[in-house]
Design a protein around this nucleic acid. Structure first.
Lengths: 177, 177
DNA sequence: ACCCATAAGTTCCCTCAGGGAACTCGGGTA
DNA sequence: TACCCGAGTTCCCTGAGGGAACTTATGGGT
C-alpha cells in the first residue's frame, strides 16, 4: 500500500497521505461519513473493485479510522462506521470539495451544498486561524520546525523549509492574497 | 492516471481526488508551495521516481495547478510554480497536516508549526463556517443537493450524485468569492 | 581541448497493485 | 429444495510505479 516508507517521515502531510493519499480512500470516507456504510453499497456506489474495497476497508480499520460493526444478528451483517479519528478527516474532505467546487463546478453551480446547522446557512468551509479566525493562505503563513521534528541534516518540515536555495527562482511568489 | 472516470462524476470531492488523490501529488504541491520548485530538487526531496515525477508535473501543468517557468536562460533551466488554482490547494494540505499532527505526532509534538503572519501566532488550521466562523464538523452540518447536482431518486449528495454528468466539462474559472 | 558536472528529462525493464468477473460461505425465504 | 442476499475471496491480466541508465544542452576547471 505504501509506495515508500512515507509513514516514517517526519512530516504530517506525508503521514496523512500515506493513508489518505489514495482516491478511493477519500471517496470511501466521504461515503461512510454521509451514511453509505455497507460493503455492497460502497462497492456499487463507488464502482470500486470489491477486492480493493476490502483491502482499503481493512486498512482503515487497522488504522482506527473506521470500525467494523455488526448491525444485525440474524443473519449476521457488518458495516463500517467512522471513529472520531475518522470523523476528523471531515475537514480534509471539505477542503477538497471546496476546491473542486471552485475550479470544476459547471455553470449551474456546485453539485452539493453544506448547510451549517449552527447558524442555519448554506456555507463554504474556510481554513481559518484557530486564534484569530482569519483565513490561512500560502501568503500569510510560514512553516517553522516544530518540537517533534528531528532537526538534523536533511530534515524537512512542512516542506523543505529547506536548506533551500533562494538562489534559484528569479521571481519569487507574487504574494497576492 | 485516472483509475475510473472520476473526473466526470458530479461530485466535487471525486473531481478533486481525481487529480489530488495521489500521495505524490499532495507531496509535490507541499514542496512547490514551500519553495522546492525544481525537478531535481523535487526528485531528491521526495524520493520519487523521475519518470513518475515528470508525469505528475505535466499533469499538474495541464490542469493549470502549476506553471513551468524558465528561471534562467543560459543554460536554459525550468522550474515549477503554483498558480492561484494551485495555491488554493493549501487548505487541503493544512487539513491533512492538522490531522496528521493530531493523530500521528509523537510525544515531542508535531514536526512543524504554522505561523500565521496576520496575528503573529503559531496556529492550527480550523475548518470554519464562512458565515459565522464556527468550526464545521460532521455533526453540525448536513449535505444537500446543490444547483449543479441532479436531484433524482438514488441521488446522493456529498457523494457521487452519480447518474450525473450533464454539466461535466464545465467552465474553468471559479466564481470570485 | 578535454573531462567532468548539472539540470531536466526520457527510456528500458520488471514487479506488483488494481480492474473485472467469477466463486465462496453463512444464513435467510418461498 | 431451490433460490436470494451480504460480505468477502480468488483468479487472471494489464498497466502504473520503482530503479537505474541514458540523453541533451551548457558551463567550469586545468
Amino acid at each position: 500500500m505504501t509506495r515508500t516508507p512515507l509513514a516514517d517521515v517526519a512530516c504530517s502531510i506525508a503521514r496523512a497521505t500515506d493513508l489518505f493519499g489514495d482516491a478511493w480512500t477519500a471517496l470511501i470516507m466521504r461515503d461512510v461519513l454521509t451514511g453509505v456504510t455497507r460493503f455492497d453499497d460502497l462497492a456499487h456506489d463507488l464502482g470500486i473493485s470489491r477486492k480493493v474495497l476490502a483491502a482499503r476497508l481493512s486498512r482503515l480499520v487497522e488504522e482506527g479510522v473506521l470500525v467494523r460493526e455488526r448491525y444485525q444478528e440474524r443473519p449476521p451483517r457488518e458495516h463500517y462506521r467512522a471513529t472520531p479519528k475518522g470523523e476528523e478527516l471531515y475537514p480534509v474532505l471539505l477542503a477538497l470539495m471546496e476546491w473542486g467546487d471552485r475550479w470544476y463546478a459547471g455553470p449551474a453551480g456546485p453539485p452539493a451544498r453544506i448547510r451549517h446547522l449552527g447558524c442555519g446557512r448554506d456555507t463554504t468551509p474556510v481554513s481559518a486561524c484557530a486564534h484569530c479566525g482569519e483565513p490561512l493562505t500560502v501568503g500569510n503563513t510560514t512553516q517553522l520546525p516544530g518540537p517533534g521534528g528531528r532537526t538534523g541534516p536533511g530534515t524537512r518540515v512542512l516542506g523543505p523549509l529547506l536548506t533551500a536555495r533562494e538562489d534559484a527562482p528569479g521571481a519569487e511568489r507574487p504574494a497576492e492574497v
